[in-house]
Design a protein around this nucleic acid. Sequence first.
DNA 1: CCTACCGATCGGTAGG
DNA 2: CCTACCGATCGGTAGG
Lengths: 200, 200
Amino acid sequence: MPRRSVAEARDTHAAIVARAVDLASVEGLEGLTIGRLAGETQMSKAGVIGHFGNKEELQLQALRAANAVFRREVWDPNAQRKPGLPRLLAICDDWIGYLERRVFPGGCFITAASCEFDGRPGRVREAVRESVLTWRRVLEDDVSAARAAGDLPKRTDPALVAFQISAIALATNQGIQLLGDERAPATARAALRDLLGRRR
Amino acid sequence: MPRRSVAEARDTHAAIVARAVDLASVEGLEGLTIGRLAGETQMSKAGVIGHFGNKEELQLQALRAANAVFRREVWDPNAQRKPGLPRLLAICDDWIGYLERRVFPGGCFITAASCEFDGRPGRVREAVRESVLTWRRVLEDDVSAARAAGDLPKRTDPALVAFQISAIALATNQGIQLLGDERAPATARAALRDLLGRRR
DNA sequence: CCTACCGATCGGTAGG
DNA sequence: CCTACCGATCGGTAGG
């Protein structure tokens, strides 16, 4: 095989990462193996690992790619809107939609990675932690803006509401993926109305 | 080594399962390996696997043992009380306490197993699903009793409230295990008050 | 419950 | 980006 150009190598790299994300969403980031990834991308193991150096770096890049997917699905559609309750409601709706559409074959990638790495130290765990914390802060800031605008009561605790919204998303993911509960998205939307709607 | 008596074999079996539960709570039920389990119980691999036949059966028994721990920690202390809001509040409090005390070193076993197996078919997945569903029904029944007793509003949807309580537990587990948020149990209790307390 | 062993696969390296 | 290879470990079996 001839050496590839820089552009071709970049495409190959991206293709490997994309496949790694789908595989890891089902098998887990630890269950992801270089051999299987090589088989599915029609490459040699050495060809695959050469793009990353080691498995941990592959895991980190898969996680980064998954974060980008989440951002694209849930954040980007609402990024232009001004912070506050209307945007928060839209974000929540897109979040449930993202889970409902099964964007990752194995369910929410970040949730799976959270459960898998919450008991083991290392760079992957810290990266997952940052993803979750960043997203919590986004929610919290919109809750704060909503409260300041008078769309949520003065007594509203933004960190608590961000926790409650995350909680609903975790349970929705479990409802869809594990329980096969087709009503889970509707239940989630009812819970969100209960949380954000009734106090307006 | 001499053959052991039936009683001794049973003790050995129980010791292996107990060790398997702790290991799997950190490494996952798939990450659990017979070789490592053998090392930690000072046995040969053949000695370990002889008790189960294959790895799937070991996983199922570890899951059953974890279910028993959860039941002991959260259900048993309240089993004698009559269904209704006071018992439901006590169950929720024991549930948060169970997470707070880190009964399993890697966090809630059933939650971890749920994330790990929600994307792969098989007996383990079905067993996890049954655990979660059974527990949801327990919550739902107490919500129904509380509503019938007039302790929750007539419009209360028991399945929705069971979903919301599960959601809080999932987020609490993530807060404690992944985020290292020491306020997570307090936040969870606030969320439960918000859910079950304010409407009385 | 052990020793000894099986084929398969793991993450990764050397060298081109 | 490949072939060829490394030592380690996987789940599991045979036989005692």
